[in-house]
Amino acid sequence: MASQVPVSRKLKEFIINKQGVSVVTTARLHMGFFDLNGNLGRKFGSIGVSLDKPATSLQVFAADTISVEGPSAERGLKIAQAIAQSLDIPHGFHIRIQTAIPEHAGLGSGTQMSLAVGSAINQLFNLDLSLRDIAVLTSRGARSGIGLGTFAHGGVIVDGGRGEGTDVPPIIARSEFPQEWRIILIFDRSHTGVHGAEELEAFRRLPEFPADSAAILCRHLLMQALPALAEHDLPAFGQAIRELQWRTGDHFAPAQGGRYASPAISKILGQLEADGVDCLGQSSWGPTGFAICADETDARALLDALESRYSHFPQVEFVLCQGINSGAQISTCSVE
């Protein structure tokens, strides 16, 4: 990968035809790790689902220099420069970011931006990189392969965690997310989740996760969550996810200030649990929370109730969305 990439015939065609590459990818929920103990030789392992929104959408065109505009432009530029330097790409390019998943909200914004930028550059310069190559180039997939799985395939993704020789956690299962189910995202705009160096330090300081708890969570995943998805059984799926949330959330509590990162979202999720909502929790390090409903009618009724009940929380926003069972969209676009 270190040798200089020649200017391809394909890039020349893009320039002549005044075309570029468009990538649209969406956020994901990271619902929890099921083996934080790792005494079998693999650690982490997680389950997550691709969402239809919010999205990161961008366009990449050949240019004289490397430049980026739009939301999260600073992050996009760092990713672009790192890729160009690693591959010694001999031509500039401009990235126009149209929308970006909120940063440090627990929705996978960094991974999706990295894969989107990398995939666009790959297509523009005809580099023949795999998604795994892009992840390694951009230092993604350190603990979870959920973001790569949702970018590639959408749906509900289970990854197998990290072994001694793992560079990117392998995807070991995928399921369709039931089309009738709906997801309410709960944002706290005043709070950011643990990330970067703080995240690394948090993992270093956390105590050992009990092996018996990891065994219980693996059983909930294999014998409850995945069969429940196949049968569209939301109460059973929700029970498995709540178990993941309780055990991992309490394990992470010293690093994030409680079972959930945001006090406001913690209060909301506690009330939803008391009200009997089947499936709820926090995505990754948060602060974004989620609740899954059986259908559109139930979701809109719950959304109305939440907006009314918590109107005194100005920093909190509720967004209705759904799972998406397809991966990122990569296509040719015209230079405007």
Rank of each mutant, 00 (worst) to 15 (best):
R96A: 14
V68N: 03
A63M: 03
Q322F: 00
A63W: 01
Q322E: 14
T248D: 13
A173V: 01
C279G: 04
S8C: 11
P169R: 01
D298A: 14
F125W: 06
S119K: 11
T332I: 13
D304T: 06
Q224F: 04
N37H: 14
T138E: 14
L58H: 06
G45S: 03
C218S: 11
T332F: 07
D133H: 05
S308D: 13
D35E: 08
V60W: 02
L200R: 11
F125C: 10
I292C: 08
R182W: 03
H191F: 06
S262H: 04
K78D: 12
D298G: 13
R132C: 09
T166I: 03
V158R: 06
A142K: 12
T25D: 11
V156F: 13
V316Y: 05
L77T: 00
Q224I: 06
D212F: 07
R219F: 13
G154T: 07
L124I: 07
I292D: 08
G163C: 06
N122G: 13
E317I: 00
P71L: 02
E74G: 06
D188C: 00
L217R: 05
S311N: 12
W285G: 04
N39M: 10
M223S: 14
L303E: 09
T99W: 04
A63E: 12
A215F: 02
A202M: 05
S8N: 08
G249A: 03
P207L: 07
I146S: 05
A299D: 05
Q322C: 05
I89C: 11
V335K: 14
E69F: 00
P90W: 08
G110W: 02
I216A: 15
S109I: 01
V194P: 08
G20Q: 04
K78M: 10
K12A: 15
G161A: 11
A197K: 13
I16S: 15
G147R: 01
F14H: 09
H220S: 13
H30M: 01
A202K: 00
H30C: 00
Q123P: 04
E231R: 08
S262Q: 04
G145N: 08
A291Q: 05
S46E: 12
L131E: 10
I83N: 11
Q256A: 06
